[in-house]
Structure formats: structure tokens, C-alpha cells
Design a protein around this nucleic acid. Structure first.
Length: 837
RNA sequence: GCCGUUGUGGCGGAAUUGGCAGACGCGCUGGACUCAAAAUCCAGUGGUGGCAACACCGUGUGGGUUCGACUCCCACCGACGGCACCA
């Protein structure tokens, strides 16, 4: 027993020595905690990144991120990714002489705060401010060069005053209106149900929480975004945005060109059904019609024999959620109304059905069915045994609908024509006979703008007892949220907003004694984020939303970075508000964001999306603590192209930290001052690599290719380890190149190199092209496309000389000895290819 | 089903205009230092065959254009994201 115990003790002692030496090893690398704290404090105290006035005479550069929702969970590793990307652009352009505006703020309205308040009795405002404090501390620990004097918070009354003000302008122009419309009602949503916007419905369920959505009629506030559909679509073309996002917006707006056609109802001449079709050329093939079950005419035209069936069908549809209604594998269903429509082009009587495959919200909610040439109509006709009449040659109508182009048949004056010609001709005919006209349609629907919630901007409207409705006067804005206690905030169960419980806030009396009630719905979270990029420009202005002169100088945003999940919601709403403000003459540009970049997702080490349940979440706080903010920043930029998804690797992160240690060591040689081999004279050994590095890093930053910029800086440091002397000028310039990615360590070393001022405004280094171009280069000689030899040639050699040099090469001679040279391709500086047979 | 993105070593990725595929990093292997290890520094590292010089194969698959293709064209397969009865 005794010996074993002593062995154990010995092993333990050895282990401690091991630990101690590791600790000492750490001292050999740089002390990121002290350095990062020191420079963050310095930047704060000196307001280093305060934006210069508009009168500075410098060109402007406005760069921003999609501001975060300050959740209680704090930062995840995706935040530093996009924030570092913009910070590099901000710091890079600052050194290049731009006046840089890089702000940060908080998108702080939202459901979690309200739900937390209901659960715990805390005030959502206090809770939100706590979260912001925590978030801000985390963000600050990463050393981003924000102008913190411009910080904004959407829940601050001084901010939402202007959100409400914009709403009032929309109201005055008739673009904000209250309407009894079919809304997306999610009754199971915690807090007594909620109405959500069309954009917030995913697969028939709410985007947040996945609760089923039903279409029910309700009185709601709606913004007339459809009025801007065409401009929202066509102005996309000039934007420097990812094609995927532009395409998603185009699809969402969903423009289509076709025709409206009027069908009289047989025997009821006061009624006519207007249908929308993109294929008016197939009018002769229409064999029945379909109305959406909710269509106004249904009750009016249904015959008494069919009424029971129709009512039963309508009742069945009403009880279904959107998800059930849109299940594609579901069989087509419908009911016959007993009525007939008259085809204007040939006077034929065709039956009118109702079916839920026709949507009340698109077009006119009614269609003419051409089963021979439309897949959906074909399925329906087969199911209910309705006639199928071919009017275009092609396909096999006995098997499936033919939707392609072809020659028209059985179509009187359209016969022989193709699709395009036939469409033109039938539209002319319809217009001549008052039976229809050309029509453009959009899938885009108006923006359902009210939410039955407490924690949002109050809609500044008063409903008076005499039936009138007025805006809260602009001079009384902001209309502040009243304080509610825990009980008052609880859901009413009727779908009404908790604000209905704020009696003293709710009830108002006009000067003439008429009583009124405030609107109790609040705005959706998207309201505050639809214009915040304007407020950063002039965040403390209490007279106007922002000074027009300042807007003129700063707009529009030169670079906007954020996640692709906002492809339609936020980005479409923000464009809509911006265009509206443009029309009012408030903003000088048609579009808010000239260039948009979506950062890719950072996945877990297992290549899967990070999630708590998978246990693959990386916490940035822990990385900053053990590796440092600089290492995290450099690593996240080195992982791969910004726009791509890429998996996390702690080993690779450690490699980046080793690189920063190497940088530290080459500058300090682990002493107190700087490495003695850094000297004023230049032995020219590093000329080429230095100039190459400046060139590549400058170009790569400008194109946001951060991973390759970093790899070039690694190559440079590898070269310095082989050098005997390091020119001071080059080493200073290197610090500037690295600074945008790793700002703390470079400030520290910059100071050690003897500078008194921050590195942030040092003029960006230039390179000498002549130092990069070589006089003598190695060129590959290919034989039949395969590299068989390498030769050294002067760079300015002629084509013929080059060909001769190649064929004179002994290796080449050996290879071609018994073959015929057919052709020699010789391009100086590129390649030599000898084609032989 | 439609639209978009994407496919390169053991892994992350590079190759800017059609011109030497695999820069840089991770990992791995070997060496120096050390009593030993860690750290650090140096070197090697696509696969197969060969002592070697070298040869052959190699950028999702199959074809094509070209003196030459990761790159351009056609067809297909897989992964990711979005839309989804929009007439």
C-alpha cells in the first residue's frame, strides 16, 4: 500500500508542476485581459470613435448592422461575426480618410419581455433595460468602434415619438386605415391569442412558437403597402443585394400580368363574376367557374336546391386552419352552387362551383377553370367529372393538363395563334366588347399592423363617442405607454389588448365634453426597425425626425450587414416606410440600403445549427475570457467567406490565438520594450512580401474577403520569423493592416512602437507596385496540357523567345524527341503549352 | 413542384480574367530544445505505385467546347435555404 501511495503523490506533484509551467507558458503569451480592458477604457474616455460633424469636409461612410433584440440569453457567436465584419469596414475606412458612422442600438419591443412580466410581475421596461445593459456590456467586451453617443432604443419614448409620428403621416395620407378584414388569428398564442402579419405566417403557423393560424374577419389596422408594390419591385434592380434576397422579395410581391374577364350570371343579370386569369387565351377552354367559399356573390347566386350543400361546405372550410387548407396532398373539395356563368366569348353556360383551392385574398377570389391547361383545375374536373376541353395543341389531355405553349385550336378567332399572340388578341377583343381588360396583380397584401399587446408603441388614435376618429395631436407625442400591474397585463381572453385595462389612460374627454377612448392595439415589432437607420443620423433631435441636411450628407447606408432571416419582413417594411418618407420629401433617397450583405450562420462543431437541445452552443463570453476578443474576432473572420455557413472549431480558434502570440512575440521578443531586431534601416529582404501584403489586404478588405486578408498577414508574419532585421516602417504598417480585425493588440503594440496617438486614424499604408513585379519568373511548360518542366524567364520576354526557350529545355527535348510538335502556345507571364502528336 | 445558394485533401477553406489545383489555418508525422513533457522553433503532409528519378489518378456524376476547364455550355445527383393551390 505504502509504495503505491507515494507513487500517487509523486504523480500528483508532477501534475502540479506541469500546471505551474503551463501557467508560466501563458505569461510568455500576451495578456489579453489587461490589454483589451485598457484599450476599451481608452476608447471610451477619449471618445475615439465619435463621428465627425457633417461639415468635416471628409467623404462619408455609413455602415451598420441589423440591431439586435436584447434577449435575456445574451450574445451568441453569430453576433460577433456580423459586428466584426462591419467593424473592419469602419476601421479600415476611417484610416482611409472617411468620416465613418457606425452606430448600435436596440430593437427592444417584443413579446418575451411582456410574457416575462406577466409571469413574474416585473415591469417590461425595467426588464428590457436590464437586458440591454447586459447586452451592451457583452458587445463592448468585443471592442467594436461604435459611436455610442448615437445609441438608440426603440422602447424609449423619445424614439417612439417619431415611430408614432410616421404612423400619423401614413394615416393622413390614407395609407393607414382600419378595416374589417380576414386576418391571421392565432387563438392559442400565449396571452390570449394574437393577430399576425401575412409575413409572420410560416406553413400555416405563427413564425414565433408555431401556433396554428386561422383566417377570421376582425377589425384591424392595416398599412397600404400594396400601393408601393410596383416600386418595391422595380427598385430592387438597382440595389447591390444578394440575389437570393432580391428574388425572395420579388416572389413575395408576386407580380403577374393577365386579364380580368366578366362572366354574367345566367338568369340573374344584375350579377356578374369578375375573374382574374393569366391565361385569357384559354377562354374557349373554360368549362366551369370557381368562387372562393368566402366570395360575396356565393349567397346571392346559390339556388335553393344547392343551398344546403353550399352552406355545409362553407361551414367546414371556416373551421380549418391555414395549414389544413394548404395541405397540397389533400384531395380537391368543393360544392356546386346551382348557378351558371355565361362565357362572354361564346355565350356558353358553364357551372359555378365554390372550392377552397381558390383563395379569396388573391385576384378577385374567382376563377374561370380551364382544366385542359391548368393542373389544379384538371384535378378538380377529374374529381367532380366536369368537362375538359383542349384549346392548345400538345400534351396528352387524357393523362394530365398541358400547360406549355402551342398552337390554339377550338378557339374561333384565336386558332393557329401561339400563346403570346392569342393573349394579345383576346385582350383586345375583351376590351372592345366590354367583357374584360388587361390586369396586373400582386400577391403582396396590405400589412396587418395592429397587435393585441401591451409592450409595443401605442397607436396614436382616439375613437370618439360621436363616431369620429382622430389622431393624437403631434404636439402631444409621444403617446406614452401607461404603467400596468401584473394583473392588468394578463390576457383578457377576448383578444383585446391589455391596454384596455388602463382606465385612466384609456378614457379622454374632448373640450366640447364628448368622451373618447384610445386605441388599445399597439404596433408590431417591425415598426421601430423600419426607420431606425434614419435616427442614428440625428438621434437627439426633438424638432424633427432627423435634420434634412444631415440626412442629405449620410444617406443612404453604404453597407448593411445582417441575417438572411429578415429577407422579406424587416427589409420590405423598411423599404416601404423609406419610400413613403421619400414621397413626403423627408428623406433624400429612394432606397435605404445600397449594399446589403447576409452573414452565413456559424454552425456547431458537428456541422449542425447551434441549439441548446443539441448541446453545441458556443458562448462568446467564455471565448473572450480565455482566448480574448481579438482572437475571437480574427477567428470568426478567418473561418471562411463571411456569407457562407461554417462550423465552429475550437482547435482552429486556438491556432488563431497562437498566431496572435506570434505577432506579439515578433514585436516584443517577450521583453518590455520592442524586439531589438526591429530597426530603422531596411535590408530590403522583406520589400516584396511587404508590398504584396499591403496590396492584398487592402483589396481583400475592400471586397470583404476577410479570410484571405488574414491568411496573407499570416504569410507575412511567417516571413518575419525568417528575417534577421525587421524595418520599423514595415512593422508599423503591418499593425495598421491587422488593426481592423484585432484592434486591441495592435493598439498596444502601436504604443510600444513609440506612438502617442491612437492607431485608429493613422493613414492607411500604401504599396509600391514595382516592388511586387519580378524581373525573372518561373514558368510552367506544359506538353499536351500537362506540366512537364519549369523554366526561368525574364518577365518581358517575347512570345517567340519564350517558345524557343521552352523547346530548348533539356527536359522538354527529351519528352518531345520522338513526336511532332503541332503547335506551341506561349503566353509570357502565363503559360507555355506544347501540343505534340 | 418552383426559385435561390452550394458541392475542392482527414477538417475549415484558397485559386481575382479559362493558364502550375490544394495558398493559409487545423489535424497528423518527423526533427531541434528538454532528464522528460508542455510551450516554442524548423521541416514534411491529396491518393496510388516505386529505393528513387518519376508515372498514373484527382475539384459531386456523365457528356461537350478549348492547345488548356475547379472556372464556360448541356444533362443528372446530393446538401442547405426560401416559396408553395397566387389562377
Amino acid at each position: 500500500m505504502v509504495p503505491r501511495k507515494s507513487v500517487l503523490l509523486f504523480l500528483q506533484a508532477d501534475f502540479f508542476v506541469h500546471q505551474l509551467r503551463n501557467k508560466m507558458g501563458d505569461f510568455m503569451s500576451y495578456d489579453h485581459k489587461a490589454i483589451e480592458k485598457r484599450w476599451q477604457t481608452y476608447w471610451d474616455e477619449h471618445k475615439t470613435f465619435k463621428t465627425a460633424p457633417e461639415t468635416s469636409g471628409k467623404p462619408k461612410y455609413y455602415v451598420m448592422n441589423m440591431f439586435p433584440y436584447p434577449s435575456g440569453q445574451g450574445l451568441h457567436v453569430g453576433h460577433p461575426e456580423s459586428y466584426t465584419a462591419t467593424d473592419i469596414m469602419a476601421r479600415f475606412n476611417r484610416m482611409r480618410g472617411f468620416n465613418v458612422l457606425q452606430p448600435m442600438g436596440w430593437d427592444a419591443f417584443g413579446l418575451p419581455a411582456e410574457q416575462y412580466a406577466i409571469k413574474t410581475g416585473h415591469n417590461p421596461a425595467d426588464f428590457t433595460n436590464e437586458n440591454i445593459k447586459h447586452f451592451k456590456k457583452q458587445v463592448k467586451s468585443l471592442g467594436f468602434s461604435y459611436d455610442w453617443d448615437r445609441e438608440i432604443n426603440t422602447t424609449d419614448p423619445e424614439y417612439y415619438k417619431w415611430t408614432q409620428w410616421i404612423f400619423e403621416q401614413l394615416y393622413k395620407k390614407g395609407l393607414a386605415y382600419e378595416d374589417e378584414i380576414m386576418v391571421n388569428w392565432a387563438p392559442d398564442f400565449p396571452g390570449g391569442g394574437i393577430v399576425v402579419a401575412n409575413e409572420e405566417v410560416i406553413d400555416g403557423k405563427t413564425e414565433r412558437g408555431s401556433y396554428p393560424v386561422y383566417r377570421v374577419p376582425m377589425k384591424q389596422w392595416v398599412l397600404r403597402i400594396t400601393k408601393y408594390a410596383e416600386r418595391l419591385l422595380s427598385d430592387l434592380d438597382d440595389l447591390d443585394w444578394p440575389e437570393a434576397i432580391k428574388e425572395q422579395q420579388r416572389n413575395w410581391i408576386g407580380k403577374s400580368t393577365g386579364a380580368a374577364v366578366f362572366f354574367k350570371v345566367d338568369g340573374k343579370s344584375d350579377y356578374q363574376v369578375e375573374v382574374y386569369t393569366t391565361r385569357p387565351d384559354t377562354l374557349f377552354g373554360a368549362s366551369y367557374m370557381v368562387l372562393a367559399p368566402e366570395h360575396d356573390l356565393v349567397d346571392k347566386i346559390t339556388t335553393s336546391e344547392c343551398r344546403a350543400d353550399v352552406d355545409a361546405y362553407k361551414a367546414k372550410i371556416a373551421s380549418k386552419s391555414d395549414l389544413e387548407r394548404t395541405d397540397l396532398n389533400r384531395e380537391k373539395t368543393g360544392a356546386f352552387t346551382g348557378a351558371y356563368g355565361i362565357n362572354p366569348v361564346n355565350g356558353e353556360k358553364i357551372p359555378i362551383w365554390i372550392a377552397d383551392y381558390v383563395l379569396s385574398s388573391y385576384g378577385t377570389g374567382a376563377i374561370m377553370a380551364v382544366p385542359a391547361h391548368d393542373t389544379r383545375d384538371y384535378e378538380f374536373a377529374k374529381k367532380f367529372d366536369l368537362p375538359i376541353r383542349q384549346v392548345i395543341k400538345g400534351g396528352d389531355i387524357s393523362k394530365e393538363a398541358f400547360t406549355g405553349d402551342g398552337t390554339h385550336i377550338n378557339s374561333a378567332f384565336l386558332d393557329v395563334l401561339d400563346k403570346k399572340q392569342a393573349i394579345e388578341k383576346i385582350i383586345d377583343w375583351l376590351e372592345e366588347h366590354d367583357a374584360g381588360h388587361k390586369q396586373v396583380n400582386y400577391k403582396l397584401r396590405d400589412w396587418i399592423f395592429s397587435r393585441q399587446r401591451y409592450w409595443g408603441e401605442p397607436i396614436p388614435v382616439i375613437h370618439w363617442e360621436d363616431g369620429k376618429q382622430t389622431l393624437v395631436p403631434e404636439s402631444e407625442l409621444p403617446l406614452r405607454l401607461p404603467h400596468l400591474n401584473q394583473d392588468q397585463m394578463k390576457p383578457s381572453g377576448t383578444g383585446e389588448s391589455p391596454l384596455a385595462n388602463a382606465k385612466s389612460w384609456l378614457e379622454v374627454t374632448r373640450q366640447d365634453g364628448v368622451k373618447g377612448r384610445r386605441e388599445t392595439n399597439t404596433m408590431p415589432q417591425w415598426a421601430g426597425s423600419s426607420w431606425y437607420f434614419l435616427r442614428y443620423i440625428d438621434p437627439h433631435n426633438d424638432k424633427v425626425l432627423a435634420d434634412p441636411e444631415k440626412l442629405k450628407y449620410w444617406m443612404n447606408v453604404d453597407l448593411y450587414v445582417g441575417g438572411a432571416e429578415h429577407a422579406v419582413l424587416h427589409l420590405l417594411y423598411a423599404r416601404f416606410w423609406h419610400k413613403f418618407l421619400y414621397d413626403l420629401g423627408i428623406v433624400p433617397t429612394k432606397e435605404p440600403f445600397q449594399k446589403l450583405v447576409n452573414q452565413g450562420m456559424i454552425l456547431g462543431t458537428n456541422h449542425e445549427k447551434m441549439s441548446k437541445s443539441k448541446g453545441n452552443v458556443v458562448n462568446p463570453d467564455e471565448i473572450v475570457d480565455s482566448y480574448g476578443a481579438d482572437a475571437l474576432r480574427v477567428y470568426e473572420m478567418f473561418m471562411g467567406p463571411l456569407t457562407q455557413s461554417k462550423p465552429w472549431s475550437t482547435e482552429s480558434l486556438a491556432g488563431i490565438r497562437r498566431y496572435l502570440d506570434r505577432v506579439w512575440r515578433i514585436f516584443t521578443s517577450d521583453g518590455d520594450g520592442i524586439n531589438p531586431i526591429i530597426v530603422s534601416e531596411n535590408d530590403h529582404k522583406l520589400d516584396k512580401i511587404f508590398n504584396q501584403t499591403v496590396k492584398k489586404v487592402t483589396e481583400d478588405y475592400a471586397a470583404m474577403r476577410f479570410n484571405t486578408a488574414i491568411s496573407q498577414m499570416m504569410v507575412f508574419i511567417n516571413e518575419t520569423f525568417k528575417a534577421e532585421k525587421l524595418p520599423k516602417k514595415y512593422m508599423n504598417a503591418f499593425l495598421q493592416l491587422l488593426n481592423p480585425v484585432a484592434p486591441h493588440i495592435t493598439e498596444e503594440l502601436w504604443q510600444r512602437m513609440g506612438h502617442q496617438e491612437t492607431i485608429a486614424y493613422a493613414t492607411w499604408p500604401t504599396y509600391d507596385e514595382s516592388q511586387i513585379i519580378e524581373k525573372q519568373i518561373e514558368m510552367a511548360v506544359q506538353i499536351n496540357g500537362k506540366v512537364r518542366a519549369k523554366i526561368n524567364t525574364p518577365v518581358d520576354i517575347s512570345r517567340d523567345e519564350l517558345a524557343k526557350m521552352a523547346t530548348d529545355n533539356p527536359d522538354v527535348k527529351k519528352q518531345v524527341a520522338d513526336k511532332n510538335i503541332v503547335k506551341i502556345i506561349a503566353i509570357p507571364g502565363k503559360i507555355i503549352n506544347i501540343v505534340v502528336k
